[in-house]
């Protein structure tokens, strides 16, 4: 198994509107950037050039890890609209 394979196996119905919003002004100066490694879906990445955390909601597994590891209140967090987001298929 290689990590990249994992993320290709998740099925989603992506809503056009993000269900989580990151307020970048609040996360400037964060010392740990725990969202960038703790998020199990790798939704948060740190861009060295722009010196900021980038966030993409499409691959979100709706677990809440980012909400709980962020201590700057930089996330307005919610679940995707009804019927949208991750769906666990069965094999």
């Amino acid at each position: 198994m290689i990590v990249d394979d994992l993320f290709d196996l998740v099925s989603y119905r992506v809503h056009p509107e993000p269900h989580i919003r990151l307020e970048r002004e609040r996360c400037q100066g964060c010392s740990h950037r725990a969202c960038t490694f703790a998020c199990p879906a790798r939704c948060y990445t740190y861009s060295e050039e722009r010196e900021q955390v980038d966030f993409a909601y499409e691959a979100c597994l709706e677990c809440g890890t980012c909400l709980l590891v962020c201590d700057r209140g930089a996330l307005s967090w919610g679940y995707p609209a009804g019927g949208y987001g991750v769906r666990f298929r069965l094999t």
Binding site: F7, V10, A41, L61, G64, L68, F88
Partner: peptide, 9 residues
């Protein structure tokens, strides 16, 4: 064969 990945709290 790896068929699915997921995470939860």
């Amino acid at each position: 064969r790896l068929v699915e990945y997921s995470a939860h709290l």
